[in-house]
Amino acid sequence: MSIELALKESMTIPGALGVALVDYDSGMALGTMGGGDWFDLEVAAAGNTEVVRAKLRVMASLSLNDSIEDILITLHRQYHLIRPLTTAKGPTTLFLYLVLDRERSNLALARHQLKRIEGNLTV
């Protein structure tokens, strides 16, 4: 599945407000969909690269032999879901960043659907 199709499918997740595919090495979004004047996905994508980098640094400091499945940030009205991508070749420097309206979303379903989209995405 292409990046554009993955972003479109992510936006069909109930409650989705915006989605981005982000490279945490550069902080650049490879693609975004949704968001708007009230929520700049480019800025959010760049900022969340720091979240991913910080967690990876902590894991390395603790010598954890593990990987991040996803990171959830819970706000009063939104969920922010960060899912680092893994391919058949192993981990990448990419993550999917999904913003959900908390009142209209089902977090367990969103995590499941984002995992399925990750499995079909080819970059």
Rank of each mutant, 00 (worst) to 15 (best):
D23I: 03
D23Y: 03
D23P: 05
D25V: 15
D25R: 15
S26L: 05
S26W: 04
G27L: 02
M28Y: 13
M28T: 12
A29W: 00
A29H: 00
L30P: 04
G31Y: 00
T32L: 03
M33N: 06
M33C: 05
M33G: 02
G34W: 03
G35S: 11
G35H: 06
G35K: 11
G36I: 02
D37T: 08
D37L: 11
W38E: 13
W38R: 10
D40E: 02
L41H: 04
E42S: 09
A44D: 13
A44T: 13
A44S: 14
A45L: 03
A45K: 02
N48P: 01
N48L: 03
T49H: 04
T49L: 05
E50I: 15
V51H: 08
V52A: 06
A54N: 08
A54K: 09
K55V: 09
R57S: 13
R57T: 14
V58E: 10
V58W: 12
A60M: 11
L62H: 05
L62Y: 04
S63L: 07
S63T: 09
L64A: 07
N65K: 15
D66C: 05
S67D: 08
S67Q: 14
S67K: 14
I68Y: 06
D70T: 06
D70K: 09
D70P: 04
L72S: 11
I73R: 15
L75Q: 08
L75S: 11
L75I: 04
H76Y: 13
R77Y: 08
Y79S: 05
Y79R: 07
H80R: 09
P84Y: 06
P84W: 04
T86G: 10
T87V: 11
T87M: 14
K89S: 11
K89C: 07
K89Q: 11
G90S: 12
G90C: 08
T93S: 05
F95S: 00
L96M: 12
Y97K: 02
Y97D: 02
L98N: 00
L98T: 00
V99K: 00
L100S: 00
R102Q: 13
E103I: 07
E103K: 15
R104C: 09
R104Y: 10
R104F: 13
S105A: 09
S105K: 02
